[in-house]
Design a protein around this nucleic acid. Structure first.
Lengths: 161, 161
DNA sequence: ACAAATTAAATCGCGTGCGATACAATTACG
DNA sequence: CGTAATTGTATCGCACGCGATTTAATTTGT
């Protein structure tokens, strides 16, 4: 078995390419780019499905947390979604305007914002339940690949902040 | 070997979970969410590295195409980056202002916008060449996982538009 | 106890992404 | 040959993401 030294960030290369330091700057040798491109594609594909629920993708994953937890503070929500106050604050304002959530200060620690799901928000879940399958029908992937992808992505999410 | 029927979009589930139709709406059962979260994380991590080059991530991948092709029309650029005119037009304007590219109409077909790299744009490549390794040092992934990830992502990018 | 440090949210500004639309150049076609 | 359809680009409006900063509440250290 021939072992080739691999440089991080590169994908595939032959001998002659090893000698060109600029090879790493080609899009096809980048792993970050397809992650970015697929992410964009996912959000694009979700849009028409979520429009029926009057949700954007970010609002949708926020509601996912709410459907599961019913009540959560903004800090915890940020942890779940890997987002911060500067993204969440305006988003939560919109979800409140739509009537899917309510916001109130934590009586025990007034710094904390407690977010609760409303009756209307709960109802939305019934419409949302079909969305994952609808999307999956547009972007199919073998179950074992889903699992590999999942494990690798969470490994990447785990590293550092 | 026990075979369980798998529903698209779900990740892992036991018997009791199979019966709850709302399980699919939990964040941890979604494959799209970690893609989205990792993509955000990547762009976040690139930012301080790219600031030295006066580039955003999207501008950086655009320059990658330019470093490789030297000259390209907007349509082709969009194909390479999976982006459209509504994203590229303002971005190209900024890259032109920074002096990294020039724009001109194609004489043979005036609808086409031909983008060319400048001397200054070429120079930038020398600073950029270290960026991939810098990022890789922050987000490490075993080479075989990089390859799996790469193949799966391009499979997803290939499907449909 | 009280000033300093820390923490949680909110706000601001900028740069995307993209659906919708507009517009101009080119091509297709009856 | 002239009009309709198509194609490539640009513009507009909205909703993110996020670095930087601000504000208010709480905790820490002496």
């Amino acid at each position: 078995m021939k072992v080739e030294k691999k440089q991080e960030g590169k994908i595939q290369k032959g001998k002659n390419q090893e000698e060109n330091p600029y090879e790493v700057l080609k899009l096809k040798n980048q792993i970050c780019f397809p992650i970015y491109a697929v992410s964009n594609k996912i959000v694009r594909r979700y849009r028409p499905l979520l429009q029926k629920l009057d949700l954007t993708y970010t609002q949708y994953i926020t509601m996912m947390v709410m459907w599961e937890k019913k009540q959560v503070n903004e800090k915890m929500l940020g942890k779940c979604l890997f987002l911060q106050s500067n993204t969440l604050a305006p988003l939560l304002k919109k979800l409140e305007e739509k009537g899917y959530i309510t916001k109130e200060k934590d009586k025990n620690d007034e710094r904390n914002l407690v977010i609760s799901i409303t009756e209307k928000g709960e109802k939305l879940k019934e419409q949302a339940v079909n969305v994952p399958a609808e999307l999956a029908s547009e972007m199919k992937l073998a179950p074992e690949k889903v699992k590999m992808l999942y494990d690798i992505l969470y490994e990447l999410l785990g590293e550092g902040a």
